[in-house]
Amino acid sequence: MRVLSKFKGFLFSLFFGFLIGCGESASLREHVYQGGALGTSYAIKVFTADTTDLQPAIDSVFRVVNQSLSTYQPDSDISRINRGDSRVQVDKMFAEVFEMSVQIHGQTEGYFDPTVGILVDAWGFGPGAALEMDSTRVDSLRQYVGLEKVRLTPDFRIAMQQPGMRLDFNAIAKGYAVDRLGVML
């Protein structure tokens, strides 16, 4: 829940700052946009004199991000890759998030690792069913963890050295979605 609260707070701060930068007007009105994306919900408040309905554009951004990066959608690119579908050709968004993850993985000496998807699911924090966990189970699942075992090929496919590995970009995808919303606005 803390992550959800921080995500909502970050969205609010982003849009509040965006609006302050647009200048003041005596006829500002509050517009609230709500929905679900990336396995959570969002609420965006915009204060503007403009009456344009932003909901379709917001929904469009989240739809594209979800289709690429959401582990909560069974037909998303990442879900198909996690099921072992090597035919998936990822989009630019997926490639950007993958490359950012590789960079952050290196900067944190491996502490940030989006290949922990199998552990996230095993502990019951992802879309998969929780397992009975003990040190033996954790040790057996760790063989499926390690970003150095995954690469983005020149034809935009994900190649994994170890079948059964699962990517989980949820630690970075929400911030990426906010960045995409900022570009849209």
Results as ranks from 00 to 15, higher is better:
Val120Gly: 10
Leu119Cys: 12
Thr108Cys: 07
Gly106Thr: 04
Val116Leu: 11
Asp121Asn: 14
Val88Ile: 15
Asp85Arg: 11
Gln103Pro: 02
Ala129Ile: 07
Arg80Leu: 12
Lys92Ala: 15
Val88Met: 12
Ala122Asn: 05
Ser79Cys: 05
Arg80Lys: 15
Glu109Ala: 14
Ala122Leu: 04
Phe94Gln: 02
Val120Met: 09
Pro127Gln: 14
Gly84Pro: 01
Gly110Leu: 11
Trp123Tyr: 15
Gly106Asp: 08
Glu96Arg: 09
Gln103Asp: 13
Glu109Ile: 01
Phe112Ala: 13
Arg87Gln: 15
Ala95Glu: 12
Arg87Cys: 08
Ala122Asp: 00
Asp91Phe: 04
Met100Glu: 13
Ile118Gln: 05
His105Leu: 04
Val116Thr: 12
Val97Gln: 08
Glu109Met: 06
Ile104Ala: 08
Asp121Thr: 04
Gly124Glu: 06
Ala129Trp: 00
Gly106Gln: 13
Met93Pro: 00
Phe94Asp: 03
Val97Asn: 04
Pro127Ala: 15
Val120Ser: 08
Phe94Glu: 06
Gln103Asn: 12
Phe112Ile: 07
Gln89Leu: 07
Glu99Arg: 15
Ala122Phe: 04
Ile81Gly: 05
Thr115Tyr: 07
Glu96Trp: 01
Phe94Trp: 02
Gly117Val: 02
Ser79Gly: 09
Asp91Lys: 13
Gln89Trp: 03
Ala95His: 03
Phe98Tyr: 08
Val116Ala: 12
Lys92Leu: 11
Glu109Thr: 11
Gly117Met: 09
Tyr111Ile: 09
Val116Gln: 08
Gly110Ile: 06
Ala129Met: 10
Val90Leu: 06
Phe125Met: 03
Gln89Arg: 15
Gly106Asn: 14
Val88Gln: 11
Asp91Thr: 14
Asp121Tyr: 06
Gly126Asp: 08
Met100Thr: 10
Glu96Cys: 06
Phe125Pro: 01
Ser86Val: 14
Ala122Arg: 06
Ser101Lys: 04
Ile118Trp: 02
Gly124Ile: 01
Ser79Gln: 02
His105Asn: 13
Val120Cys: 04
Thr108Gln: 09
Val116Ile: 13
Gly117Gln: 03
Tyr111Gly: 12
Gly128Phe: 00
Gly128Glu: 01
Arg83Tyr: 03
Met100His: 14
Ser86Glu: 11
Arg87Glu: 14
Pro127Leu: 02
Val120Asn: 00
Trp123Leu: 15
Asn82Asp: 04
Gln107Leu: 15
Glu96Tyr: 10
Glu99Cys: 13
Phe94His: 05
Ser79His: 02
Ser79Pro: 07
Ser86Tyr: 08
Phe94Asn: 00
Gly110Asp: 00
Ile81Met: 09
Gln107Cys: 10
Gly117Thr: 04
Phe94Arg: 01
Ser86His: 13
Val120Thr: 08
Gly126Ser: 11
Asp113Trp: 01
Gly126Met: 03
Ala129His: 11
Gly110Arg: 12
Gly110Ser: 10
Glu96His: 11
Ala129Gln: 14
Thr108Gly: 05
Phe98Ala: 08
